[in-house]
Amino acid sequence: MSNQRRNFLRSALAGAALLACASLPAHADTLADIQRNGTLRVAVPQDFPPFGSVGTDLKPQGYDIDTAALIARELGVKVELIPVTSTNRIPFLTTGKADLVISSLGKNAERELVIDFSDAYAPFFNGVFGPEDAAVATVADLDGKTVGVTRGSVEDLELSKIASDKVTIRRFEDNNATISAYLTGQVQFIATGNVVAAAVNDLTKLRRLSAKFLIKNSPCYVGVAKGQSALLTRVNEIIAKAKTDGSLEAVSQRWLKAPLPADL
């Protein structure tokens, strides 16, 4: 499409959306705002254990929430958690309603055009799980099978990359739907995190999840709005420090029941 036509489309569509202009009033420096307000606003998941789910008081908890608290502590400010879903997490960031997105984000080239990503802050041990007796050892064995996955999650991105066209991937709204689909036999396999599979096996004896193969360890990154280089640099410093002083290791042990990989 020619640049001119694209520009025309862009302005026509944006205009129709009743937008006075096609860009945000530039937030000069989010880091300075955070320090002035004394609050770090972080978009976190609440439907994606162990990274973010809720406790009995309905307050978010998990790896992502602990990471948010850790970053706020290092910045010397309070943390304000904004529970988000995979649908609205990026708009919260791009409209300046959140300062950071810590929502087990995986990265790809397209996504990097829209937001900036920090260094990796969490490992993600995903695998394909299924019935004990299913003979699946590699991704090639999934051909002709149906695999459930949570739409937009790291495992969705990674599985979509490696699976052939012959694999039917069913993408559900959240972990609950993905797991329910497996437990009720609506899908033959699911791709999910190790810890999630273990927790499901603890909670239900309906249809056990047995690990078939591991998907490449694909880490998670903190999302920062474009153009906030000061904030991005500061977040990267904090993550680097947390990796060496053991504080991120503690978070990993607590939520993933595994040590932080050395190559993260």
Binding site: S86, T87, I90, N108, E110, R111, L113, V114, I115, G148, R151, G152, D156, L157, R170, R171, F172, E173, D174, A177, A181
Partner: peptide
């Protein structure tokens, strides 16, 4: 779309989950 039926909202959510 929540039960993976690939209708319009599913398509929208799929696209935005890839390119944000």
């Amino acid at each position: 779309s929540q039960i993976a039926a690939e209708e319009l909202t599913f398509a929208a959510n799929f696209i935005q989950s890839r390119n944000f």
